[in-house]
């Protein structure tokens, strides 16, 4: 099997770019990152089928000169899937923008709670009790500060 080194390098570049965007905090950038990663995977699928040859249409070209149709079918399916998921992500971006006026992801409440416990422990304050005890607390009192 022969493949183009240049195309392999393009796949590598797209994967790197996609993952960088995916780790960002803005849902819009995450969407673009996913699109780029999808392109990388589709390009890799096409590369997996070997070199580019004549279109795999019976009657147009000799079977020995045809490109591998299977990978083209795979890539087509994968493109449709990534297209659908991209739309869903865009809907989430829009929703996020409608709710908060930005597409930045908010802090995870659990992370914030843990950070809070650590912060209070560092400053010598009594940390909250973990589980079990309902006796020393009036019913319904919130455990958050």
């Amino acid at each position: 099997m022969t493949s183009s080194v240049a195309l392999a390098a393009v796949v590598a570049g797209l994967v790197a770019l996609g993952f960088v965007l995916l780790t960002s905090r803005s849902l819009g950038r995450i969407t673009v990152g996913f699109v780029v990663l999808g392109h990388a995977a589709n390009l890799l699928l096409l590369l997996a089928g070997g070199p580019a040859l004549a279109p795999p249409v019976i009657g147009e070209s000799e079977p020995s000169r045809m490109a591998d149709p299977l990978v083209q079918a795979f890539a087509l399916t994968a493109i449709v899937i990534t297209f659908g998921v991209t739309l869903l992500l865009l809907a989430m971006v829009h929703r996020s923008w409608a709710i908060r006026g930005s597409d930045q992801l908010p802090d995870d409440p659990e992370d914030r709670r843990l950070a809070d416990v650590e912060h209070r422990a560092e400053h010598g304050e009594v940390s909250e009790s973990w589980g079990y005890s309902t006796e020393n607390r009036s019913p319904g009192e919130r455990s958050e500060p």
Binding site: A41, L44, A48, G49, L70, F74, A78
Partner: peptide
Amino acid sequence: ILFLTTVALIY
């Protein structure tokens, strides 16, 4: 995406 990449590599 990783799954798709793996499928491509196996193919």
